[in-house]
Amino acid sequence: MKVEFLEPQSLQDAVAMAKAKGVGARFVAGGTDLVIQMRKTGVLPEAIINLQRLRALGEIKHDADGFSLGALVTHRQIESEDRFLGGLQALRESACVIGGHQVRNVATLGGNLCNASPAADMVPILLCFNADVTLVGSSGSRNIPLAAFIEGPRKTQRAHDEVMTDIRFPKPAGKFASAFLKGGRRRAMEISIVAMAGVVSMSAGGTMTDVRLAMGAAGPKAIRLAQAEKFLEGKVPSKAVLEEAGKLAAAAASPIDDVRASASFRRHLVGVYARRVIELGWNRISEAGNDRSAA
């Protein structure tokens, strides 16, 4: 089996090559998924298009509108990004629980999103930040909300000749905090059985506002927990309030039974982690000074 290896030096080249080679071509960035898939299935693509020369896609940028993460930004870059402290710290928390250093040093955010694993740990927090992804293809460029981009397990809106270039999200306004928690059998090297991310802001009156909550690994794709969010809006996180939010979150889960955990345990954990993520976020706001809350 002969596989062609293509090294585009520009985005345009990459797109053109993918279009020319058709569905038999595969993009590769960090390679941590593709190489395993090739070995396990024995099925090789006709061509591998290496995106790593597109260095511009490897940067984390910040402007008045918010953040832009290049699709080739690695998990290690995210977990060690100083601007992702304070209110954005859940980005770091989500990035640092994926594989070991060896994987995070090369595995890219774009790869993680395009693979669309239901348990991809970066997705929930990016959903909370209302992230968009940019795809560039032969017919131009388009922005899609991340929530719509991922359609289901291993399914996205990306056409085979489209390259994901970046992931953008606006910085939430005011005083806010974020948190991420995951469940797994070990403390490291775990594919989440439940992943939960949350962002919460504090209103002038000291209540929760602009609450955002998203879960992963508890359904075919990571989703925002709209009902729990709505319920929490304007409230203070009392024990009863958090309990109720947990119940609403658990009700929104549609988990499966697999070798890692049963559906019922996943649902239970969704309730627990939804509550804890909000609680943790709220404690973080309360502990942080006004100026330290956001990056």
């Binding site: 290896f5 960090g30 390679g31 190489v35 591998i48 290496n50 090369v106």
Partner: peptide, 20 residues
């Protein structure tokens, strides 16, 4: 695990071609 450009990587999942 080996070190590529100063970073540890799992050489089993890195394409050799990417190490040019």
């Amino acid at each position: 695990t080996v070190v590529v450009d100063g970073k540890s990587v799992a050489s089993c999942t890195m394409l050799a071609a990417q190490c040019q």
